[in-house]
Computed example of a mutant assay.
Amino acid sequence: MAGPDRQRKVIHVDMDAFYASVEQRDDPDLRGKPIAVGGSRERGVVAAASYEARRFGVRSAMPSVTAKRKCAELIFVKPRFDVYRAVSRQIRAIFAEYTPLIEPLSLDEAYLDVTENLKAVASATDVAEQIRARIRAETGLTASAGVSYNKFLAKMASDENKPDGLFVITPRMGPAYVEALPVGKFHGIGPATRARMEGLGIFTGTDLKARTLDFLREHFGKAGLYYYWLARGVDERRVSPDRVRKSVGAETTFSADLFTPEEARAALDPLITKVWTYCEDASIRGRTATLKAKYADFQQITRSRTVDEPVESRAMLEEMVIALAEPLFPVSKGIRLLGVTISSLDVESTPRPGQQLRLPFQGS
């Protein structure tokens, strides 16, 4: 790990439209066509969209009906999570040849600390290029990468030249890059926080930097300190391969509010799958299921249920979550966000320090 006087070198690798790209790789008839993984013509939610579909405005977490309206030629493909996990393991093995400091965020993205890498390559940019080339050669897929001196900027950089791109934010570039960034583009600042910031006259990194620490703490609580330093291009979080998770969760903000139990069940299905996939891959179990709902007016509620024994199947988790969702209906105002979390994790089955975690996917 980098010493106190040594600049850290961080890479964020993000696979390009991972689920959709795997499907197009394995089925030549799908190549070059707009496809949506998950959902169907009549119901459900899109789990991932190919770049061809994204040109029509199709996005992950979008109701299938909306996606079909946006793209009449959209092809729906059933997800194959076993295949995605297998490819993710291939990619993770490539990472491990360069550094043991790997922090997975999902099946298709991870942070790597390559300050002192196993190949003794001086340039983090060169390491990123080598990794991208290896991924293409061994999996037939493309990856984008961001290189910088901290996690926040590496994550932002990986989005700059997607798909199949590389972008570097040097220490000299960092502060100016952040100052020019709209706050809505900051990783970790969602729609609700962005709206609050804009209501306070904070639209860019420059605006955020101009606010005092006391002001940010007053309006954003503990997160105020984090935002204060982000506005200055500072992020001291380390790449942590052995972080212990207290909960596992996934949530989605919808492009159109939900009003019926049927819409909610369809929207919850991929979230339950994401959470359970993580639990399976990381060999952990939890006893508390929590449902989060945010309404159109941004009012937020949570409902939880705890059982005596760890949840041992996806079906059991689904049953708990649906039971928590049913009392929400009928609704007088639409639901704009749903989230599913499992907590009270079984400590004895939590991954050992150094064991790599495979988190649920995120659209990219």
Rank of each mutant, 00 (worst) to 15 (best):
A2T: 04
Q7T: 12
A20K: 00
D27C: 07
L30H: 14
G32S: 09
I35M: 11
G38D: 05
S40T: 08
G57R: 02
V65W: 09
A67E: 07
S88V: 04
R89E: 12
I94Y: 06
I102M: 15
I102R: 05
E103N: 02
L112T: 07
N117Y: 07
L118C: 03
S123P: 11
V127M: 05
E129H: 12
A133S: 14
R136W: 08
A137M: 02
G146M: 00
V147W: 03
K162G: 06
L166K: 07
A176F: 05
E179I: 06
G188M: 03
E198P: 06
L200N: 00
G201R: 10
G205I: 00
D207A: 05
F220M: 15
K222Y: 08
A223I: 11
L230H: 14
P241H: 11
R243F: 05
V248E: 01
E251S: 13
E251F: 04
T252Y: 02
T252L: 00
T252S: 06
D257Y: 14
L258V: 08
A266D: 10
V275G: 03
C279N: 03
D281W: 01
D281N: 06
R285V: 01
K292R: 11
Q299T: 12
T306Q: 14
V311Y: 04
P327S: 10
V340L: 15
T341S: 15
S343T: 06
S343N: 05
S349Q: 09
Q356G: 12
Q356A: 11
F361P: 14
